[in-house]
Write a protein that binds this DNA or RNA. Structure first.
Lengths: 122, 122
DNA sequence: TAAACATATGAACGATTGTTCATATGAAAT
DNA sequence: ATTTCATATGAACAATCGTTCATATGTTTA
C-alpha cells in the first residue's frame, strides 16, 4: 500500500474509514490540553497584546510608559497585562510606585518568530 | 551604566523616558505586520481549529470524515476549513466528490509544538 | 494623616466570533 | 437529464472579547 492510507471508498454510508477514528483517539491530546492550547494562542491573537510583547522583547517597562508609548489608556494596558500575566507570558516586579513588566520566558519569542516567518512566506 | 536602561525617574511629569519612544519606533514592526500576526494567531485560538490541525498532523482527510471524527456538523467544519485555508495553514485537493485537506507547511507544527511546551511548563 | 501618583479592577457597551439552519454549488451515478 | 452525494456559503443568534469610564488599592511624599 501507499504511505498514508490511500483514500479509497470513504464517505459512503458510514463515512469515517475505520483507521481515522483510531488515529484521532490515539494521537489527539486530551480535551483539556487542546483547550488550554487554544486559550494560549487566543492571547497572541490581539494586536495590542502583540505590541506589548514586542516592546517587552526590548525593554522592561512600567505600565504608564507602555500606555504612553503605545498611545493607549492606562486601563486598557493594565487589563491586557493582567491577561498576559495570568498565562505566564509576562512577569512583574514592583519598584516604588511603579510596577515593571518583562517577558516571563522565551517561548514567546519563538512562537512569535514562527508566526512572522509564516506571514513573510505568504 | 547597566545593560538595559536602569529605570530611573520614570513616570514623573511626562512619563515615557526618551529612549522608550525611540525603541518603540525603531523595533516595532509596522502596524500592518502586527495586525497580520495577531490575525494569524487568532486562528490558532479556537479549539475546533486546533483539533482539526492535530488530525491533519497525522492524515489527509475529507470534510465529512473530519466532521464525523470530531463529532461536529459538516457545516461547522467547512467554515473552519475555509478560515484555515485562507491563511494558508491548510491546502485542499479534489478527488471525485470529496475534497481532501492537508497541512500547507510546517510552521504550524513548530508553532503548536512551542505552545505545548509553554503549557507543559506551567 | 492627607494628598498625589501608579496601577488594578468591575460594570457596561459595541464589535467580533463560532455554530446552526437552510440552501446553493458542483461532481458522480442512474 | 435527474437524482444523489460531498462540500460551501449566507444569515442569524448567542457567546466572547477589548475598550472605556468610574473607582478602588497601594505606595510615596508632604
Amino acid at each position: 500500500m501507499a504511505e498514508h492510507e490511500k483514500p479509497e471508498g470513504c464517505c459512503d454510508t458510514v463515512c469515517v474509514h475505520d483507521n481515522l477514528l483510531k488515529i484521532v483517539n490515539e494521537s489527539l491530546p486530551p480535551e483539556t490540553e487542546l483547550y488550554d492550547l487554544a486559550e494560549l494562542f487566543k492571547i497572541f491573537g490581539d494586536s495590542t497584546r502583540i505590541r506589548i510583547l514586542f516592546v517587552l522583547f526590548e525593554v522592561e517597562v512600567c505600565v504608564c510608559d507602555l500606555a504612553a508609548a503605545l498611545n493607549m489608556t492606562q486601563s486598557a494596558i493594565s487589563h491586557q497585562l493582567k491577561i498576559l500575566k495570568q498565562s505566564k507570558l509576562v512577569k512583574s516586579r514592583r519598584e516604588g510606585k511603579s510596577i515593571f513588566y518583562s517577558l516571563a520566558d522565551d517561548h514567546v519569542r519563538t512562537i512569535i518568530a514562527q508566526g512572522c516567518e509564516h506571514i513573510e512566506e505568504n
